[in-house]
Amino acid sequence: MEEKAVNKTNSNGYTFMFAIIMVVVVGSVLAFAATSLQPLQNENVRQEKMQNILATVGIEVDRAGSEELYNQYITETIALNSDGSVNEQADAFTVDLAKELKRPAPNQVFPLYIADIEGEKYYIVPLRGKGLWDAIWGYIALKDDVNTIKGAVFDHKAETPGLGAEITQVWFRERFTDEKIFDESGNLIGVSVVKGSPDPTDKSDFKVDAISGATITGDGVSDMISERLQHYLPYFKTQQEIKVAIQ
């Protein structure tokens, strides 16, 4: 009898059954953990988004304190249609650019955040594009002339550590500060990330120095800035208080 019991536990059927039970148990535990943690993960993402938006206008804050300062300094959140009109049905903060970019441009919704910092007005535009390996994204803040960059924040999904992933670093972000995006005729040029050490003091050359070895990621940053900003021109043209001549 003892030998039969041993043989039973060593059988293929027993092994398969044990494996199936373990898969079900582990899968159930993981599913429960994922479901339980989802609200916390969503909250972390929401706070990090506020944190990044604030960083573009020079307000550095930890994630836990981001909501209070966001509510203090972000005075308007607007969802725009492609013609510059306000989309009253959309919630700007919850617009998912990854999904929007899969739609034709005329059907997309364009979020815009407006900040007031000590009486100075800033327009914050969300960005999204493609790097070397996957998506890159960020935010760029424009001063009240919508021609001068106040600050920018970038992030990525899978860029190379030490190369393209360096777009998240403060020293790279600071290269965009005070750069112009329109030429003297009011044409949108944007800012290009290029090799060759552009003069960092020349803020009207529409260029910042690239990260060595990260050409494709840099091109992605350049492209997403000009592509995303282009969609906000119809709205900017309707704002009488904006000081720059936009074509």
Rank of each mutant, 00 (worst) to 15 (best):
E179M: 04
V23M: 13
D155M: 13
E120T: 12
A5V: 11
V153F: 15
R228A: 14
A210F: 11
V57S: 08
I20T: 13
V26N: 11
I140A: 09
V109C: 06
Q240M: 04
R103V: 13
A105V: 13
Y70K: 05
D178I: 03
N52C: 09
T75I: 09
T215R: 04
Y113D: 04
N147G: 09
A19P: 07
M50E: 08
E68D: 11
Q38S: 12
Y73R: 01
K99S: 04
Q47E: 06
M50D: 08
F32I: 15
E179A: 00
R63I: 15
G129N: 03
D219K: 14
A55K: 10
R173S: 11
G129E: 03
G65Y: 06
A19G: 06
P106K: 05
K243E: 11
S222Y: 06
E159C: 07
A245Q: 15
D219E: 12
Y113K: 05
Q169I: 06
V61Q: 02
T15M: 15
F236R: 07
L37D: 12
Y122A: 05
E166M: 11
K130M: 12
P200V: 00
L69W: 00
K243V: 14
W171H: 07
I59D: 10
K237W: 06
A214Y: 02
L101R: 14
E159K: 09
E120A: 13
A31I: 03
A115V: 11
K99A: 15
Q108N: 05
D116Q: 14
D134W: 07
D183E: 12
V208A: 02
I242H: 03
L112A: 03
D91M: 02
E120W: 02
G220W: 02
G164Q: 05
P106A: 03
Y14G: 01
K99F: 12
R128P: 12
S185F: 07
V125N: 04
L233E: 00
V191R: 00
P126G: 05
A64C: 02
L37I: 06
I74H: 01
H231R: 09
P161N: 08
M224T: 10
T217I: 06
E159Y: 10
K4R: 13
L229A: 01
S28M: 10
A152C: 14
A105T: 15
Q169T: 10
F93A: 09
A165H: 00
A141E: 01
W133G: 00
D145M: 04
P39S: 08
F16S: 12
D223P: 05
Q89S: 14
D91T: 01
W133I: 05
S36V: 12
G119W: 10
N87S: 15
Q247I: 15
D145H: 01
L132E: 02
D155G: 12
A33G: 08
D155W: 11
E2R: 10
S82E: 05
I246E: 00
Y122I: 03
I167Q: 01
W171K: 10
R228T: 14
F154L: 15
A214D: 09
N81C: 03
I59S: 02
L69Y: 07
N81F: 10
Q108K: 06
V86C: 08
K4L: 15
V208D: 05
P161V: 02
Q239G: 03
L233S: 02
N147T: 08
I21A: 07
Q38D: 15
